[in-house]
Write a protein that binds this DNA or RNA. Structure first.
Lengths: 141, 141
DNA sequence: CGGTATCCTCGCCGATACTG
DNA sequence: CAGTATCGGCGAGGATACCG
């Protein structure tokens, strides 16, 4: 299906075996990055960094997430190998989510970012309030 | 459109002066996080960490981005106080983008994440390929 | 060169209903 | 409790055209 015949020479730069290149549109790392940095992906990873959670726990912890998006986000992260899903054959059923070793690693980076934003929100909002007067017509929503 | 009448008590929890709470749906930090972790926001920040860039340079560097989205992303990051925009009154016109002190700080965290993903793409793809056989006859796509 | 404005499509996401 | 299936809106985002 992928008939890109332009693999002649320009694309000669090899990647060191499994090294991704985020600047390339079709590098798989783009998809992974999108999952990790998705609106709910970030929050799920950070939450799981605090320990194993059940579905409902995550749903309650992460304000504003719908069941559908939470399930979808968890599936993507599980597929990427970041999240482990354990089903307990009980009644009522119980499912627990936790980070894999790989997931723990990314989540640490994600939390570093999330923490920085939370901790510097004051400075950020201050910077926002002090832009030189630009012209109107801002597409800001 | 904001007829959420439930602002009676739930919104009572104050934040310690400028500290954000990403778990709260209406905390401003959510918007900032979304800008920073947006599909193109991440790549723009990392690119600018490499130094000042002109519009076209960024466009060429970041594969797959459209002019519209690049402009939009840069505006959002500028509004948040992460990116500085300098216009040179020349002909042909030249505009340079660089990181502010604040932007340099976030970008470092973003790059840590981006670098990790690029560097561990091999392990990630391997994890994707090796999901433990859940129920028999996995619905492997 | 470095944008902005307009159109239009696609898929994200919420709401709802149903299953085990 | 913990999901999956389906429908529909609406906004993100690409293509194009035009301006300073």
């Amino acid at each position: 299906m992928d008939h890109r015949a332009k693999l002649d020479s320009a694309r000669a730069r090899r990647k060191p075996a499994g090294r991704g290149d985020l600047y390339s549109p079709d590098c798989p790392s783009r998809a992974v990055l999108d999952h990790v940095t998705s609106r709910w992906g970030v929050l799920v990873l950070v939450a799981l960094l605090g320990g194993t959670h059940r579905f409902s726990q995550l749903r309650r912890r992460i304000g504003g997430v719908s069941e559908k998006m939470l399930a979808q986000t968890l599936q993507a992260l599980e597929a990427d190998g970041f999240v482990r899903r354990e089903v307990f054959p009980e009644i009522p059923p119980r499912v627990e989510y936790s980070l894999t070793a790989l997931g723990d690693d990314v989540a640490a980076r994600v939390r570093a970012l999330a923490d920085w934003i939370e901790g510097n929100l004051g400075r950020i909002l201050a910077s926002q309030a002090a832009p030189r007067a630009r012209r109107a017509g801002a597409t800001e929503r």
